[in-house]
Design a protein around this nucleic acid. Structure first.
Length: 418
RNA sequence: GUGAGUGUAGCUCAGUCGGUUAGAGCACCAGGUUGUGGCCCUGGGGGUCGAGGGUUCGAGUCCCUUCACUCACCCCA
């Protein structure tokens, strides 16, 4: 048996990779418009970084991290998410001292050891944004607008913005205890999972899919009733600003995020046709994280887009192939040499071109040109060679004309650039 | 970690009650047309039937084991 890739690790093949380039380049362009700069951090970090930022009792830290001991005995971990690494770099290089506000984005692979399923892999890819240094609700609105712009430019339809506020370290504890009290009274009626969640992370019971649990929860206290005055005002401002941008909001008091560091605004973009893992992007505010990691007391908000899920929502592979503009078809050895030099001239001017070197019939080479969906075929046989001409065939219209070889480059430059 | 489903050609899949040399469509190659693609026609190449063991005169088919993949749960992008 030949060696296969690891479970949950996928190759992105030609036909699919073009789609990925499109997603990444589109995002980079929009980020530039919004004044975001790219940051690239290593995929390996000290294990402690993730334990301290994501939270000890989260599933990610408890059972999903790729953690190993390196040759010097240190515990290191493949990053399960991006924000922790970016914040580490931010603090380590003292970016906080250089400017009050930072807009950063990053694109790359993350690793979580879970059972793979649709839209979930062990190595997956995210586009991440971090807006650091302001707790203004305008920043929340701008960041969400940025996210929607990216999704819009990628051509995403049928998406839904779910929005919630988780409160802050001042008000969340009172909600937590109220919720725990509520659940405690009904403990015996809850499913086993929820009984466990009750003590570990009570907010998660809202995610439960067991019908009976959901029935009980209709009467449960919601975070909305408990957020403090400041959080309340912040949240209202955010909603007002987003509504002002004509983005429909689905307020969801039950929207919970899986990482401990989130505060106040949290949001998720869900899409139909994704199967059970329907969140294509998610994010929120994490005002306490930088300080918690040993940096200054700076607020921040960010989001992550899941690229595998994004790719699932983009149209099928057929449209994403890398088409040449000109397919060169030489007939015979002498023509091949001439065609080769013409090919390199096209390459030099960055006109996508292709040519095969096998001694195949005209028919067979035209088939190839058709197969790779070339716009033009340039046929060079002995007849043309003798007259110093080349036959240009438009593969869409079937029309063809013989042009002098010296005009070859100009002919395609003119047509390619428009 | 738990549950279910699926493994036959490069891809998608048929294969009856266990019975001869394992099939189709697509893709690939060649020809039909001495130098003209897509459509059509003809022919061709390509298989450890996931792997190992068992039952049987005989296994793609039945039994056991194992591996892989997929979907779902948990949780998340």
């Amino acid at each position: 048996m030949a060696i296969q890739a690891l479970k949950g690790f996928k190759d992105i093949l030609p036909g699919e990779s073009e789609k990925w380039v499109f997603m990444e380049e589109t995002a980079r362009r929009i980020f530039r418009t919004f004044g975001f700069s790219e940051i690239r951090t290593p995929v390996l970090e000290k294990t402690d970084l993730f334990v301290r930022s994501i939270g000890t009792s989260t599933d990610i830290v408890e059972k999903e991290m790729y953690t190993l001991i390196d040759r010097s005995g240190d515990s290191i971990t493949l990053r399960p998410e991006a924000t922790a690494s970016v914040m580490r770099a931010f603090i380590e290089h003292n970016l906080q001292g250089q400017q009050p506000i930072h807009k950063l984005f990053s694109i790359g692979p993350m690793f979580r050891h879970e059972r793979p399923q649709k839209g979930r892999l062990r190595q997956f890819h995210q586009i991440n944004a971090e807006y650091i240094g302001t707790n203004s609700p305008f920043a929340d609105a701008e960041l969400i607008y940025l996210l929607m712009q990216i999704l819009d430019h990628l051509g995403l339809l049928e998406i839904r913005l779910r929005l919630n506020s988780l409160g802050c370290p001042l008000c969340r504890p009172s909600f937590n205890s109220a919720l725990q009290g509520f659940l405690g009274e009904r403990q015996s009626e809850l499913c086993p999972d929820c009984q466990r969640r009750m003590s570990t992370n009570p907010l998660r019971v809202f995610d439960c899919k067991v019908e009976r649990c959901q029935e009980l929860l209709t009467a449960a206290p919601t975070i909305t009733d408990f957020v403090c005055r400041a959080c309340q005002e912040h949240f209202e401002q955010v909603q007002k600003l987003i509504s002002g941008l004509s983005i429909p909001i689905h307020r969801d008091p039950r929207l919970v995020r899986g990482l401990d560091y989130y505060t106040r605004t949290t949001f998720e973009i869900s899409a139909s046709h994704l199967g059970s893992q329907d969140a294509v992007a998610g994010g929120g505010r994490y005002d306490g994280l930088i300080r918690q990691l040993g940096g200054a007391d700076m607020p921040a908000i960010g989001f992550a887009i899941g690229l595998e899920r994004m790719a699932l929502l983009l149209s099928s592979q057929e449209e994403w192939i890398n088409r040449p503009f000109v397919f060169l078809i030489p007939l015979g050895a002498a023509a091949r040499e001439k065609a080769f030099s013409l090919l390199t001239i096209l390459y030099k001017k960055e006109i996508p071109a292709m040519m095969d070197y096998e001694d195949k019939s005209l028919k067979s080479q035209l088939k190839r040109a058709d197969k790779v969906k070339s716009r033009f075929a340039a046929i060079l046989g002995t007849e043309e060679l003798n007259k110093d001409r080349i036959l240009i065939r438009n593969l869409d219209t079937q029309s063809q004309e013989a042009i002098p070889i010296p005009q070859f480059l100009d002919y395609f430059l003119e047509r390619y650039l428009k």
